[in-house]
């Protein structure tokens, strides 16, 4: 029996039915397994990360991050290798062991600080491209209807968007942190010290990315215009930094400088490294500022989602 040609209609409607034809009958019922709706945030994040990689801005930011990683790794390598060479050459025999121990501690602290600073601009750009316009673009394209007519809760949607807003920045920061930790181990540190630096660095990176992603999504949920959301995010980051540092200098209060979105994470990292200049009650300011930015922005985004017409009630 001859099979019907794929180019030819396989069914024709009877005279009482619509005159159109169905071109393919490959679509059939599905009887296989279905996964839990708990997977929805991961699905949302995975597809968003795939789509983001097609944007030129994301590619440029990732390239910039890799260049920054290479340059900083070279600088750190040079910096860390000098005390090792000095100690092994026998310079300053009386204080050599102490200097080396201090250099090891300082070097481990360097891992945290440099991991953040090496990628501050690429991380910011990636969050700007991937997070600051994400909800706006969904509002504009009607993607709320697409998501919320499927088994996706507003919380699941928001979780997926947070992961996707920080996904590429997290990859970049994780690679950076890993390279610096391995490099540190190769030059001076003990495995335990390198592991400690890696662990604290991971905490610092997660703190930084979660606050950036939350604020990016918070401002993105305020408008349908992607460009406006991105401008608002950039203004909060840079204008906030300028404002807080100016006010801090004017008032002579060091803690005021750690209130903005970027500096609050630096403040927390300084405390992790035991290098903070804030004492007493002021020592809690960076952590509270981070909490305020992150929780406040996420609450704003969740509230905006609950107010969206398609999800009213």
């Amino acid at each position: 029996m001859a099979l019907p040609s794929p180019d030819r209609p396989t069914t024709t409607a009877d005279p009482k039915s619509p005159a159109g034809v169905v071109h393919s009958l490959a679509y059939t019922r599905y009887a296989g397994a279905r996964r839990s709706p708990a997977f929805a945030p991961l699905v949302i994040a995975r597809y968003a990360l795939m789509a983001q990689l097609r944007q030129r801005g994301v590619k440029v930011a990732l390239l910039l991050g890799l260049v920054s990683l290479a340059v900083c790794a070279a600088i750190l390598g040079a910096k860390w290798s000098l005390p090792t060479m000095a100690a092994s050459a026998g310079f300053g025999e009386l204080g050599g062991a102490g200097q080396l121990a201090r250099a090891v501690r300082d070097g481990e602290a360097d891992v945290l600080v440099w991991a953040l600073r090496a990628q501050i601009l690429p991380t910011f750009l990636l969050t700007l491209w991937c997070g600051a316009g994400a909800v706006s673009a969904d509002l504009m394209a009607g993607a709320f209807q697409f998501h919320f007519s499927r088994p996706v809760s507003p919380g699941g949607y928001l979780a997926g968007r947070v992961v996707s807003a920080s996904g590429w920045a997290l990859c970049l920061s994780a690679v950076t942190l890993l390279v610096f930790s391995v490099e540190r181990l190769a030059f001076q540190s003990t495995p335990l010290g390198a592991a400690r630096a890696l662990g604290l660095g991971a905490v610092a990176v997660l703190l930084e990315l979660s606050s950036l992603a939350a604020v990016a999504l918070g401002v993105s949920s305020l408008t349908r215009r992607k460009g406006l959301a991105q401008a608002m995010f950039a203004a909060i980051a840079f204008a906030g930094w300028v404002l807080c540092h100016s006010l801090g200098a004017l008032l002579g209060k060091e803690w005021v400088k750690s209130l903005d979105l970027i500096s609050c994470v630096d403040g927390v990292v300084a405390q992790l490294n035991h290098q903070s200049t804030l004492h007493g009650g002021a020592a809690f300011v960076p952590a509270l500022a981070w909490l305020g930015w992150t929780a406040g922005a996420l609450a704003l985004a969740a509230w905006q989602l609950s107010r969206a017409e398609v999800n009213r009630g």
Partner: peptide
């Protein structure tokens, strides 16, 4: 419920770049 039903909205409902 939403896992077992399908909805084709009147307005555009797609995701940018997909």
């Amino acid at each position: 419920v939403r896992a077992r039903i399908g909805y084709m909205p009147e307005d555009d409902a797609h995701l940018p770049d997909l």
